[in-house]
């Protein structure tokens, strides 16, 4: 993407995001607004996990742990550090508070990335199911550790985090995540990650430093998961119960359902799986039974996920239409 087009695209995207939020908060009812916010947070989570699971081919089930690190780090930053730095100015809202929130999101991402590095360094020696179970273990250890820190509420939950997240923030976050991971995937480094997924031994033999790349992918994945956590913690009541291994599994289902390695698939999967339980509300007490049966049926009917490894884009959609072969006369 050339520089000028990139700038125009960025400005346009920011405008669209703010417009959607402005319209959304007025037109949509609060329930749908809330589902949309949670959808977008899940999109960030699914995209970041796809970088590790789908693109690099390393099976991690500890994503909720990194989300928790980001959520608590950014919440602690907002509650403890921001008032010290900005005083009463921060609680008023406006641009100062928005800047402080942006910083809080970055703090969440960075602390989570550090956690990702510490976890990834030993875990990336392991493969397959052993890697899966160790990441699950780290995720649970992180959760129990946070549960035992009294400064962030422990078992009571972390109360008093200002609610700064709105649809604009989460849509913007999802968009940034998507663009960065897509660009990474198309770069030289992205091809190295894909090579590791396809055949780790062959990649190593061709001179790809596999361990370093695997850890890098893991750290970047953790960064975005932490960002999602930061957005989450400034939106609803914060408690470690939101970050059990079931949350990690939920994100994995989104990635697999959308198609491992397909970024647009992850967006689709995350949106579908967040919306589905809400759409099934008419069935009240049977809705989770239907949900689980649908999941099983989908896996039987379409084992490679909805999109497989394909990507959906407006451009390819249009060009395919245009280049459709004209019938021979």
């Amino acid at each position: 993407m050339s520089g000028a087009r990139g700038v125009i695209g960025t400005v346009a995207a920011i405008a669209v995001v703010w417009a959607i939020d402005w319209a959304g908060s007025r037109i949509l009812n609060p329930y749908i607004y809330r589902v949309l916010v949670l959808c977008s947070i899940n999109v960030i989570l699914a995209l970041s996990l796809n970088l590790v699971n789908g693109i690099t081919g390393q099976f991690s089930i500890g994503h909720a742990g990194f989300m928790a690190v980001g959520a608590y780090a950014s919440a602690a930053y907002t509650v403890y550090a921001v008032p010290l730095m900005l005083g009463a100015e921060a609680s008023k809202g406006g641009w100062v508070a928005a800047a402080a929130f942006l910083l809080a999101i970055l703090v969440g991402g960075l602390v989570s990335a550090v956690a990702g590095f510490l976890v990834g360094l030993p875990s990336m020696r392991l493969r397959g199911d052993y890697l899966a179970i160790v990441t699950l273990g780290f995720g649970e250890i992180i959760r129990v550790a946070i549960l035992n820190i009294d400064a962030v509420g422990g078992a009571r939950g972390f109360a008093g985090v200002p609610q700064r997240t709105n649809l604009a923030w989460v849509l913007g976050g999802a968009w940034v995540t998507f663009v960065l991971i897509r660009n990474l995937m198309r770069s030289y480094h992205g091809r190295a990650l894909l090579a590791i997924r396809e055949d780790e031994i062959a990649a190593e033999a061709l001179g790809v430093p596999t361990t370093r790349y695997k850890i890098t992918a893991f750290v970047i994945g953790a960064f975005f998961a932490g960002m999602a956590g930061a957005l989450f913690s400034h939106y609803t009541y914060l408690h470690t119960n939101s970050f059990t291994f079931m949350k990690s599994i939920e994100v994995i289902i989104m990635v697999v359902l959308g198609g491992m390695g397909s970024l647009t698939g992850s967006i689709l999967g995350a949106t579908l799986l967040t919306a589905l339980p809400e759409l099934l509300r008419f069935a009240s007490s049977e809705r989770l039974i239907i949900y689980s049966l649908l999941l099983i049926l989908l896996m039987i009917a379409r084992p490679q996920g909805i999109l497989g490894r394909r990507e959906v884009s407006f451009r390819s959609w249009f060009s395919r239409r245009r280049s459709r072969p004209t019938p021979a006369t």
Binding site: I252, I253, V256, L295, I300, Q304
Partner: peptide
């Protein structure tokens, strides 16, 4: 039905069965 598919598909199916048993149990 998913035995010939990839292992991760089978894993998600197993998670689906697990969720089914839990929710059916609650019901």
């Amino acid at each position: 039905p998913v035995r010939r598919s990839s292992r991760i598909t089978a894993l998600i199916t197993a998670i689906g069965v697990s969720l089914f048993l839990e929710n059916a149990g609650i019901r």
